[in-house]
Every structure is written in C-alpha cells, then in structure tokens.
Amino acid sequence: MAVSARLLSTLGLKGAVVSLTAQFEAATGIRIDADFAPTLVLLPRLRAGEAADVVILTREGLDELVREGLVVAESQADLARSFVGIAVKAGAPHPDIATPSALRATLLVARSVAYSRLGASGVFFAQLLEHLEIASEINAKATIISSGFTAERLVSGEADLAVQQISELKQVPGVEIIGPVPRELQRPAVFSAARMASAQCPTDADRLLRFLASPEVASVLRDTGLEP
C-alpha cells in the first residue's frame, strides 16, 4: 500500500487520528502518512512550504492559513472541541480543582506544574495563571516543555501536576486525570481540518476529510477525550 496522502495534525488529536486513519486505511486502501506537533509548531513549517495534503489545527490556526490562501477554504470542517484538564501520577492523591479558588490553592501547593509553552493548552494556562494572579509563583517552579506530552513529566517525577488538553493527557500511560479545569475558566479549543491548496493528492485528501467529519467517528473522538 503506497503512501497516498500526508496529514499534519495538531498534537491534541493524535490519539483519535491514529485510530481513525487506521480505520480509513483498512476501508479504502489509501495509506496516510501522519505527523503530529502543536499548531504553533506546524504553522511555520507549512508556511515554509512543507508538503501536506490535509492539516488539522486549532480553529484559530486554520483561520490564519485560510487568510493566507494556503488551504482550500471550502474544504474546512470543524472536527472536535477539547477541554484542558489536570493529571497526576497514577496512585497519587487527587487534589481539589472543582472551583477556581480550589484550583488556585492546588496549584500553589504543588511542587511543580508541567505545561506546554507552545500548545493551545499552554497558551491558555499561561493566561489562566495571570487571571488567577499566581503567574510568578507557579512559573518559578513550573516544568515548561516546548512540545510533547506534559504528563510524561509526572511519570519521570519532575512534576506533581500536568496541564494539557484532556485528549493529550490520555495519551500517557501511568497517569490519572483528575478532571477538567473548571468550566467557567475554560475556553474550549476547536480543532478543524482542511485540504492544503498545494495538496498532491486532493481526491484522497477530500475523501479523508469527509471521513474525519462524519458522524461515524464520534465514538472514537469521545473515547480519546474529545467532544465531537
């Protein structure tokens, strides 16, 4: 089965995309070459001319590419919403994060909090710390990563709490998700897909997009921590 379409996807959908592209390949015989990174990492790669047929980015990131003419506007599809959550190492106590005041207290007593510098969740969390007026205290002891899964820092013992999209926290074995950040503090990320204007396999790309936006993928999205 030859490579027929290249997909660049934001890290937040990795769990779902790995499962869904396997289903797509089995059903169609079209192989998908997928690569994953935060949207803020993928955007400069795409602007520099990296080849891709389909992209999955945050809604804001995709809107930028639409304005720049790099994706086909008519091919856009919103796939899922994602909420930011907090995890601990498996077996560790689950501190209270149910309210803004409880979350604030929990963050302050943590030895270190792991979050991403470039991912959508990291941008959100940095702003949340400012809103809670604890940015200097948390960042003084934070474990900030450039990309990848923050929950890996729980397994390694570098942090007590990991903050990221719930769909990303679920990718790391050996951790437990306490729950989402309180809904009144959240700004859910919307992940959206489109065909690149420079797609080498536009027919296969459109077929993949129709599949990813179809109702039949909803259960996989939910199982990986996303809302269709």
Score class of each variant (00 low, 15 high):
113 V>N: 07
56 I>A: 11
109 V>L: 07
104 R>G: 05
108 L>Q: 15
123 V>P: 01
65 L>C: 13
77 A>H: 08
128 L>M: 04
132 L>P: 00
55 V>I: 15
66 V>N: 12
78 D>R: 12
138 I>D: 09
116 S>I: 04
38 P>G: 01
117 R>Y: 12
60 E>N: 10
28 T>C: 05
58 T>E: 11
88 V>F: 12
95 P>R: 09
111 R>I: 03
122 G>P: 13
79 L>R: 11
147 S>P: 00
103 L>N: 03
80 A>N: 06
100 P>V: 03
143 T>P: 00
147 S>R: 14
75 S>P: 10
31 R>Y: 14
133 E>Y: 07
102 A>Y: 03
64 E>N: 02
54 V>R: 09
145 I>E: 13
29 G>N: 14
149 F>V: 09
76 Q>P: 00
126 A>W: 01
110 A>M: 08
78 D>P: 06
138 I>W: 09
109 V>M: 09
91 G>C: 07
113 V>L: 10
84 V>N: 10
92 A>P: 02
32 I>M: 14
32 I>D: 13
45 R>M: 15
82 S>M: 04
91 G>M: 05
91 G>W: 03
58 T>N: 10
62 L>P: 03
115 Y>S: 12
34 A>G: 05
154 L>E: 07
62 L>I: 02
107 L>W: 14
81 R>V: 01
79 L>E: 11
